[in-house]
């Protein structure tokens, strides 16, 4: 343990020293990318658009497949699975005419989600859902899980299944910053 501490102190000291000297480097020539190796082909491992989609709607044997299907082909490959899993989670969707609070039945809701991209407005408020704006982005403080639970379990007016439609964790464990880089410092 003591050795670890000493090593860590040494690392910290070197990091800090490097930091000091790196300020001076601003006035010298920084290495251009041409001197670094950026060659080769990079092959897809993971992907994500909206939060929790792969976790909630993709069956366990298909999660890697979902991560390596391009978004323009996801609907054809996965919408049926999404709909079956939605009805498994929230059986009311199996009733004819049953909808979520966006007025979507099971087919329409999963048709939206199966193409896993985040829609972002370039013209104003960006939020997953703020009571007025729907799917115009995703801000750090958006309670996206509760929104998704409400859309899955909350029925047409967000009042059904109250025990399942809010996890009662409504905010992050550290406040976000008003300015770049916005995320809170590490624990």
């Amino acid at each position: 343990m003591k050795t670890i501490k000493i090593v860590m102190t040494a690392l910290l000291v070197s990091a800090v020293s490097f930091n000091c000297s790196s300020d001076d480097d601003n006035f010298t020539t920084t290495p251009t990318p041409t001197t670094l190796d950026f060659s080769g082909t990079y092959n897809q491992a993971d992907q994500m658009g909206r939060p929790a989609v792969n976790t909630v709607f993709v069956s366990s044997g298909s999660k890697d497949g979902f991560n390596t299907t391009i978004p323009s082909e996801q609907n054809a490959a996965f919408q049926g699975m999404f709909q079956a899993n939605l009805m498994g989670l929230s059986p009311a969707f199996a009733n004819p005419g049953d909808m979520n609070a966006l007025g979507q039945d099971a087919a329409a809701f999963t048709g939206l989600l199966a193409t896993d991209v985040l829609n972002v407005s370039l013209d104003g408020t960006t939020t997953f859902y703020d009571g007025t704006n729907v799917l115009t982005g995703r801000a750090l403080a958006d309670d996206v899980i509760t929104v998704e639970l409400l859309l899955i379990f909350g029925g047409e007016d967000f009042t059904e299944n109250p025990a399942l439609s809010n996890d009662n964790v409504n905010a992050n464990d550290k406040p976000f910053l008003a300015s770049f880089p916005y995320l809170a410092s590490a624990w």
Binding site: A45, D46, R138, L140
Partner: peptide
């Protein structure tokens, strides 16, 4: 949200946990 979402990427340096745009 996408943490440890699939076997091939779980607990690797390529596991995406989250994505935001605002």
């Amino acid at each position: 949200a996408d943490h440890i979402d699939a076997p091939d990427v779980a607990s690797t340096s390529s596991d995406i946990t989250d994505f935001y745009a605002f």
